[in-house]
Design a protein around this nucleic acid. Structure first.
Lengths: 356, 356
DNA sequence: TTGAAAGCGATACCAT
DNA sequence: ATGGTATCGCTTTCAA
């Protein structure tokens, strides 16, 4: 450890040239004679020289890094998100700093701290206050992912409200269900806020009584199990639950079937996201597909583009399409194949309707 | 965007002092008269000055960052891992760079690239070749997390082999099961390699015929579903499956019950990790608890400690304890409470035996 | 207690 | 085509 790194100066001396020339060679900028280039290259190879990132970054006044801020992560959703983001960044040799704000009180300060170490920032909707986002937007490029910030701050998102409304209308109108409940905490994230809104909107549009208050639980499988317990303990349990995401839906499914409740006969369950498991459970889950990885990748590209100083005003509101995925858990007939025959989503047994 | 940042020099001019003094004040180093300090502080506040990270880092020759390398992530295991690591780092104002090597051919080169941008590196066992780890160890502090590298490279791990053997012996000896299969790909990660080894070891120790080849699938829930299909298609299905982790076990459970197979009567299933869902399914999952978050936190602390230049040779092989968690999926009687009564692991209905 | 000046490692302008 | 040198923003001797 710690054998001091070589510097441009030493390589310059070793190759018998100036530091300027070494820099030109190692960056491929400017004009260098073939002969000199070869000499320099040899010195570089021979001593395993690598330009020091900090020196280079300071001179360029670029960190060569972007930040990704999210509230503690879990499950397939965040996995996809991080990977989608990271894989775009790596293409441009940009490194990715992460920050989990979850449960930390001073997280806004931490985000600002991070802003000083990166060239651009992506924040998950709901993780950072709008005020802080505005403050950040004044100092560096920033994109909101899955949610939105103050006006003029670019955001990449889906139309959760419309998607949730479409799904809910399917249950209400096509299946004639009346007593539905929403599982998820609308104050937890913009995604859930909007899905809850879509859920209510569908009721309004069909001129039905507004649903009761949401069952406020988190977004992971265990939360769904707890929700199931709550719901099934009622004197009159609902006919169906619209869950904020697939993981809670899966949890509800496990909790319900574990208590002998039949799905969808006794209880209809729907999710949101279309994670791979959604197609594999029994009955397979009716849900909304959203392009999570693509969402993250677009966010990264948008950010990297602005960061790289590319011309043109960046799009300010990118809305990616979603699709209703009808499977068996809503009461629709399951296709004749074994529900576990399909491999992941690509060949799943789902029928899709009405891309939005 | 882009209102040029203030520099020490400007603050110095504004406060009527030298840059050295500004630096002393903003770092709390050296002696500064109360009067001067106040003046400088006022200038700093007033103009919202923050020392530029790159300038500072270059002068200190420290990046103030550590790297975390893993193979694409997914599920509760990686979530815990990342959060455990990140939350330690944030305490020391160190930022965390992530790199997902998954499915990328030139990942070793990317890791080396990253090594030039951080003060220390944590790599998940199996993500980087031993040769590359050695190479890295020569240039910066590095710790292997969940696995091990070449000798002399510190590692933080659990004893997978012993834990898997203990679990397997429970099925073999206590339940008298004979036809067991292992679900997971031993070549996928050191964790799985060792668990597979423990599985075989238990057979050897009890002088039973060695088990058949493992069912090589990934570590996510859908993989477990596919494994269940494979296994149940056999002329003579096994009496039980020992899964590489809880997620695949949960997948197997879903796949099996979806096909009308009763667990544990027709098929015994065990997992590894003790994720929150393990206690909540029906029947609850017999598994091995491992302190994932703690593993990551210890790794981070070890790394940060070395990075900060703390004295003393770092421990080179830290092995954290695991514990067998007996629940219902192995055939043991489930405790009388509803399996879903417990809330997460802390108050779960599990009985524990023989901490290791 | 304070300031001047020499780095840290690399880039890029301006001469030659 | 190449070299000298100022510069990026900050820290840290060394003197005063």
């Amino acid at each position: 450890m710690g054998n001091r790194r070589l510097t441009v100066r030493e390589i310059a001396r070793l190759a018998g040239v100036s530091v300027a020339t070494v820099s030109r060679v190692s960056n491929g900028t400017g004009q260098v004679s073939e002969e000199t280039r070869r000499r320099v290259l040899r010195a570089i190879e021979e001593h395993g020289y690598r330009p020091h990132h900090l020196g280079r970054a300071l001179a360029a006044r670029r960190h060569g890094a972007v930040g990704l801020v999210f509230p503690g992560l879990s499950g397939p959703y965040f996995s996809e998100l991080i990977q989608g983001f990271e894989s775009e960044a790596v293409k441009t040799r940009t490194s990715v700093h992460i920050l989990c704000t979850h449960l930390r009180a001073d997280s806004d300060a931490e985000v600002i701290e991070m802003a000083h170490r990166v060239d651009g920032l992506a924040v998950l909707g709901g993780t950072v206050s709008h005020d802080t986002i505005s403050e950040l937007a004044a100092m560096l490029p920033i994109v909101v992912l899955a949610g939105d910030g103050p006006a003029a701050v670019p955001a990449v998102r889906i139309d959760n409200t419309a998607a949730a409304a479409l799904l809910t209308r399917h249950l209400l109108a096509d299946h004639g269900l009346r007593r539905l409940e929403f599982v998820g905490d609308p104050s937890g994230s913009p995604d859930v806020t909007e899905r809850w809104e879509g859920f209510r909107q569908a009721h309004r549009q069909l001129e039905l009584p507004l649903p009761r208050a949401p069952i406020r639980v988190g977004l992971q499988q265990p939360d769904g199990v707890f929700a199931a317990e709550q719901v099934l303990r009622r004197a009159i349990p609902p006919q169906g639950v619209v869950c904020a995401n697939d993981e809670t839906a899966l949890g509800v499914l496990v909790g319900a079937t574990g208590r002998g409740v039949r799905v969808p006969e006794d209880l209809v369950i729907t999710g949101f996201d279309d994670i791979p498991m959604a197609a594999l459970v029994t009955p397979p889950l009716t849900t909304v597909r959203q392009p999570v990885r693509e969402l993250a990748a677009r966010t990264a590209r948008l950010l990297l583009q602005v960061t790289a100083g590319e011309p043109g005003q960046p799009e300010t509101g990118l809305v990616l399409p979603t699709g209703l995925v009808i499977r068996g858990s809503c009461g629709c007939p399951t296709s004749t194949d074994s529900p576990t025959t399909g491999r992941h989503r690509t060949t799943s047994t789902s029928r899709r309707s009405r891309a939005m």
